[in-house]
Design a protein around this nucleic acid. Sequence first.
DNA 1: CGAACACAGTTAAACGTTCTGCCAGGATCG
DNA 2: CGATCCTGGCAGAACGTTTAACTGTGTTCG
Lengths: 343, 343
Amino acid sequence: MPTIRDVAKAAQVSTATVSAVVNGSAYVSPELKARVMAAISALDYAPSSAARSLKRGRTQLIALAVADLANPFFNRVVCAAEAAVRAWGYSLVIFNSDEKPEAEKRIVERVRALSCDGMILVPVGDPASYARLQRDGRRLPTLLFGRLVEDDALDSVTIDNHSAGRQATNYLLDLGHRRIGSITGPLHLTTAKERLAGMMEAMRARGAEPSPSHLRSGEFREDAAYSAARQMLGGGDRPSALYVANGLMALGAMRALADLNLRCPEDISIASTDTIPGIGALRPRLTRTEHPVADMVNEAIRLLVDRIERSRALPPRNVVFQPSLVVGESCAPATQHQLRNVG
Amino acid sequence: MPTIRDVAKAAQVSTATVSAVVNGSAYVSPELKARVMAAISALDYAPSSAARSLKRGRTQLIALAVADLANPFFNRVVCAAEAAVRAWGYSLVIFNSDEKPEAEKRIVERVRALSCDGMILVPVGDPASYARLQRDGRRLPTLLFGRLVEDDALDSVTIDNHSAGRQATNYLLDLGHRRIGSITGPLHLTTAKERLAGMMEAMRARGAEPSPSHLRSGEFREDAAYSAARQMLGGGDRPSALYVANGLMALGAMRALADLNLRCPEDISIASTDTIPGIGALRPRLTRTEHPVADMVNEAIRLLVDRIERSRALPPRNVVFQPSLVVGESCAPATQHQLRNVG
DNA sequence: CGAACACAGTTAAACGTTCTGCCAGGATCG
DNA sequence: CGATCCTGGCAGAACGTTTAACTGTGTTCG
């Protein structure tokens, strides 16, 4: 591996000059520049990023720690982040906390050890563990994505989950449904909690109150939703509509419906928040609120890079995006029969 | 940021001793070790990876360059790779070539500049561009994943695509289908080419010959398959079964069927290769060949790490995995009506 | 009993950059 | 014409590790 010294020797200049040519950091006369360039390509020289990082104190690495790499939502996040990060001249290091707080702790250690320039974190559990992140947020600029941790002093980009729950539920209410059930994620996550809260608010605003047995929460996964839906819909006292808190879970719920010989939307209407790629092929198409994932990620990266390169000391910035309702065919007006069942 | 020198001073030992404690690279007496440990946690010291990389010539970074991050297949690859890489003590840097050869070239440059220890590459186009990779494979150990480049001297982990095409097609042939169409990916990719070749071989072995108008290829994407399917099935001369070369494309084909008011499997049987997560909710369940993605990725990482840490000079190793057929309900026996149509 | 040796640590030289401070020499100006 | 100021380029000191070479004590053994 040729070093900057080899290049300098070959071009008969100093290493400082080579550095200046490589980085364009100072004026170098045309002839010297040409000699240096020639030497560089002759030797196939490439600067050592390790040495460069050591000297500059920058690695040009941004870490992205998502909560569940198997979840299509986070795949979209990864995809968008890769592009955004590249556009800013960084590279993306991926971590999967798999919804496990201990794993997250190890990831933070690792990110720190790698001395990444910044980190996008989808926080998993345990607000107390972020105290430390906040303390040395200066050292390792960190942005919370998608989920919030109460009382934090970190940058964040989130979606208005309350509004997502409200919008989806209002749509169902507008169709005449009153017995609406919900399958949501773990309630210690703001995403799950707030979507549920939004739903409850919407219902109460219309004087409806969901039956406790119609409210389930579980892992943000297809199989969790499947079994929740089977339980809830298997009995006699079933809701006429379902609000499901995530795309993967919506698929699970639909699978449960199919297995129970229930039709969607004739027997049960389903609305959800969030989607998954390729879901367009699924009939009926899901009525759902969608996250502007790409915009959210772009904004997150922009904020983080700004924090890294400019404003270490500024107060934290918290950006909230709005979900939008996408209407499919998975919801039908409540039938007389369904309404009669109202407890 | 405290350095090893600060720790050494605080513990009243030399930096070499601190290094020995941190790396466990030499015996240090219990009392000194304790002093060092205490100093480390008191100062909250973490070794600088930049300095370490510079000295050791290793970054503990493995690059993964996939062909299309928006494709669920590669999401599974990323997910498995993250876990495997972590188990070996490395971190994963993600790149998306988006099926663009120029992007791939830039990625290779970037990976080289980052001095990653190794690279898993899903090659995109243009075999000639890999000559260089082969030349300095010693410098940047590289493993080709999923797709092959002819005549290469690099490690590789692939799937027997020929067999995948054959198995899926044989299943359709066994059901009595003779007019089988295919929607496949770009033919310059071995994945697409070989799946098609396997299909052709299976058909010819039974004396069937697909009609040219029933063979389409396009991007490995949902929308490409959708329009190909619409074209192929919209006309009068339609096949009774379809072999679709990838999970996303299978979804696209099914969407086209739905939009054409064709039923699957009653009107058209569909078999595919590869799947996508959550597809279990789709009815009918897809009959398909599946890749053992996790095993493939684990093997790839194992080979790459071995190459990095041990056997730079050994001849290339090429591992081929076998796909397995998973039967769903998307294929039905050919009907008399369908058979009568045989040209 | 002295040579050889193991042992536990230390010193200091890399690793390949970047960048500050410096120098020589030519232009500018009073 | 000498003092001053640019200007292009260079020498060399960091950056924070790792590790080879070394040092000074015991310990062992012929």
